[in-house]
Amino acid sequence: MVSHAILQLKPAKGRLEANFARLEAALAELREARPEVVVLPEAYPTGYFLQGGVRELALTVDELEDRLNELYRRVWEGPLDLVIGFYERDGGAYYNTAAYFELGGRGLLHRHRKVFLPTYGVFDEERYLSRGHEVRAFDTRFGKAAMLICEDFWHTLTSTLAALDGAEVIYVPAASPARGFGGRVPANVGRWRDLARSVAAEHGVYVVLSSLVGFEAGKGLSGGSLVASPEGTLLVEGPLFEEALVLAELDLDRIPPVRYDNPMLSDLKSGLPLLWNDLERILEGL
């Protein structure tokens, strides 16, 4: 069992100090629950919609690690794994990045730069950010994981790559503005639930979604963070539109028996090469 806490928080726009202080307070609140992994949403230190302000507020991964270490040392004893979405500065380029840190241990284990930058409708990421260009599973002290950010996950191909690469847990920091109010939950929330459940069930993986909350200039980020099990059930779901600590135990020992009953991933490994010619043909035609 690996104990997880999703920190479904609402950052104050652009206030790095306040947001790291808020994170510290949230960790202090979690001391009794003692999660082994905490998962923060996309763009947590700054808020999501920054436009050109990305340039002023982005951090290098080292700056981020220093700040996290500083607050971690004040409130935590023993190792703590932490997944966080943030705007990353690297030389003259800026990325929408998720980082996995083993605090009190090996430090930065992996960094995923968002590949699918939404630049449509209310979104304008590619105007300000560069794309990442890989999806890769990596080792943690618990097993193999991968990270995808928001729209990355709306293309199920990325989860397929992560699962084929060995990921047992897919962490998804996200920031999803509510839209479509015809049903009992906003349409985007329904979409997240459906995607998380079907991706988890298709590949026999856990999906951990950490979704930002709060209004950013009229756009209401919806929350509804969740954990989907390898069978495709929702183990837990955070509330909409408000801050919450969402706790779940991930039982990685369940993955092999679930995959034995429903061997879609191993079928894919055998069947994928048969489709390779088609994939090449289609890519050539794009």
Binding site: K13, G14, A18, L50, Q51, G52, L57, E216, A217
Partner: peptide, 11 residues
């Protein structure tokens, strides 16, 4: 050219 959301602030 200079684009900031209306709720943009800094420390």
């Amino acid at each position: 050219f200079y684009l900031r959301p209306l709720d943009f602030r800094m420390d």
